[in-house]
Simulated scan of single mutants.
Amino acid sequence: MKKFLIFIIMIAPLIFGCNKENGSNKIVEIVIFSPMDHKSLSSEIAGFKEGLNDYNWKDGDKINFIELNADGNWNDIGQILETAYSNKPDLVFVVTTPAAQIAAELCRKYNVPTIYGAVTDPVESDIVESLESSEIPITGVTDRYPTRKQCDFFSSFFKNPQEEKAIVLYTTLEKNSQILSEETEKFMNDLGISTKRVEIEDINNLENRIETLIQDYSIVIVNGDNTIIEKISIVSDICRKYKIPLFAGDPLSIEAGAVGALGPDYFLMGKFASEKANRILLGEFAGDISSSGPDKFIKVINTRISKEINFHIPVDVWLNSSEWQSYTE
């Protein structure tokens, strides 16, 4: 990663050619930053790019995307973003709470319009003063999970919830993960399922940590922790090994082996972010554009996994689901 950082710094004047001209038209430069790769973050970025294209901001014609990624090295986020902001692009789109927190500081320092995405609580995380406006040029799209609805959904799979024990996995790398894991623990306990949060201190030791924990529980939940979601297939494999259902707040986790998930459509949230970007590129002050969040959520099950682990999905779960998708392979 150090080589990557040096490379970025050395070629910065080349990749950040501000206000380049294409004929008589200015080419707008937009930095897109993600601290890691996983499907939901990639989906939000894809929605953002497609949305801008829909607004006639064509990549390579009217805009130039500069995509940067920390490859899961959280300590490198600040250096990568500092380099990006110092070259004064026209706009920065950044995903996840830790990255957005750093971006907000740099937005203030360099006065570069900024849009955040995949942030649970931008006010609590000190990214914006309020959802309505900000004194600096920053706005964005929150992915605030409907935690109570999620827990109602997760618990609905169990006929006798008082007989179950759930574990909620989280890390302390992200403020949003701590918020959501606390809420999930509370609501699941309120619904009669004995639930405990467990911190994964070393993500590189995830497999061994889960192996030592999981056999004491009948339900595993991962809700909004990007660090664990990036490695959700490891969690899923162990759950399948012990025939324990995995539930998630990230709908795309269903493809990695979660039995049920309820959460926002990240591609659509990327589209929401592109609408804000269009307004900014047309001259509106970013801080005057209110932050927004999802107005609908995806509820999805994986029937293949439920059969594989002999986990019964009650008829009531099907009948009480108004927004339903069934994932099979």
Rank of each mutant, 00 (worst) to 15 (best):
F4I: 09
F7G: 15
P13A: 00
P13L: 02
L14K: 11
N19P: 04
N19I: 01
E21P: 00
G23F: 09
G23K: 10
G23A: 10
G23V: 07
K26S: 08
I27H: 04
F33W: 04
S40Q: 03
S42H: 13
G51M: 05
N53G: 12
D59V: 15
D61Q: 14
L68Q: 01
N69S: 12
D71Y: 07
F93C: 13
P98K: 09
C107T: 07
C107H: 02
C107F: 01
Y110C: 01
V112H: 03
V112D: 03
I115S: 01
V119A: 12
T120I: 12
T120W: 03
V123F: 02
S125E: 05
S125Y: 04
E132L: 11
S134H: 12
T147S: 14
C151K: 03
D152M: 12
F154H: 03
S155F: 02
F158T: 11
F158C: 07
S177W: 10
L180E: 13
F187G: 07
D190Y: 03
T212M: 11
Q215A: 02
N223T: 13
N226H: 07
E230T: 15
A248Y: 02
I254E: 02
Y266W: 13
K271L: 11
S274L: 05
E275H: 09
I301Y: 03
T303C: 04
I305T: 11
E323W: 04
W324Y: 14
